[in-house]
């Protein structure tokens, strides 16, 4: 028993056990693959037993959606080019295009106190620890453990997670902490007269160099200003569908690269560069 307590303390306060854990991940992957089978079967069933009319109507709506997005993209290309020119005028560095990889969720942590999920990409595909993870609606979390074929993602709603954010409307910076509730983040140490309102969009600020700038993180749901206290209580709801998204995007860090030469600037202005494979589109 005391050996167990010692083991727990060693595991919590040192990093000695980490390599052992990583070596042993191959033992646990079969379990998650096994529990993933029912989902795969139902997916397969859904694929096989779909009526033609359903497929047709889905195809139709997807086409319309594509058209809308393409129109937006046309504008975006022009705006991005303009942004690059303006940034050149300001002598600021470029906003770099982020490369992404699509991954699929294969497991959810059974521990009700921790919000972690397992995805089906690992070091083979170049996933690394601390890599940001998004879904189609916003930031989801970051990679905390990498195996050859799988990795574990800590969601932003986990109580041990915090992320630097800023209000999209005016750039007020804050730190959003997880609360252990999937639909709730707390903003930490927001001064009582800070300009934050209900409905404000919080985007990642890029401070701390871990998350890329400008991805939506949460929407402010409630601001409680109690004049007796130094800080306002701000509650936000994560934009990402933390409990529903099955497909997630892994963002590759491009900030470590050398600054681009002017010749490459114009290349960066095109949003969809032709060499990107459809599996990993630039965002």
């Amino acid at each position: 028993m005391f050996a167990m307590i010692a083991l727990i303390l060693i595991g919590l306060y040192t990093t000695w056990l980490k390599p052992i854990r990583q070596q042993l991940t191959f033992l646990i992957v079969p379990f998650y693959q096994l529990t993933d089978i029912p989902r795969r079967v139902s997916d397969w069933g859904g694929d096989v037993f779909t009526s033609q009319t359903d497929l047709r109507s889905e195809n139709e709506s997807l086409k319309i959606e594509l058209l809308i997005h393409q129109r937006k993209l046309l504008q975006m290309a022009a705006l991005a080019a303009e942004n690059v020119r303006l940034r050149q005028l300001l002598n600021a560095t470029d906003m770099l295009q982020d490369k992404v990889l699509i991954a699929e969720l294969i497991g959810v942590s059974p521990n009700p106190l921790s919000h972690t999920v397992i995805i089906n990409r690992g070091s083979k595909e170049g996933v690394y620890e601390r890599q940001p993870v998004l879904d189609a609606f916003g930031l989801m979390g970051q990679v905390i453990e990498v195996d050859e074929d799988n990795s574990r993602v800590l969601l932003i709603s986990d109580p041990t997670h915090a992320i630097p954010v800023q209000v999209n409307r005016n750039g007020v910076r804050a730190i959003a902490e997880g609360t252990g509730d999937l639909n709730r983040l707390n903003l930490r140490h927001v001064s009582i007269n800070a300009d934050i309102r209900e409905g404000d969009l919080l985007v990642s600020s890029g401070l701390g160099d871990r998350f890329p700038v400008g991805y939506p993180v949460a929407e402010v749901e409630q601001v409680v200003r109690n004049s007796g206290q130094a800080f306002a209580r701000v509650i936000a709801r994560p934009m990402a569908r933390l409990d529903r998204s099955r497909h997630v995007l892994l963002v590759f860090d491009t900030h470590g690269l050398t600054p681009k030469t002017p010749a490459e600037h114009s290349a960066a202005a095109h949003l969809n560069s032709p060499e990107t494979a459809p599996a990993a589109p630039d965002l």
């Binding site: 307590i5 727990i8 595991g11 056990l17 854990r21 042993l24």
Partner: peptide
């Protein structure tokens, strides 16, 4: 290992 909780958590409770 499986649930990725601190090593020893379930070991301890099972022994108790």
């Amino acid at each position: 290992l499986l649930e990725s909780v601190p090593l020893g958590q379930h070991g301890l409770s099972l022994i108790i």
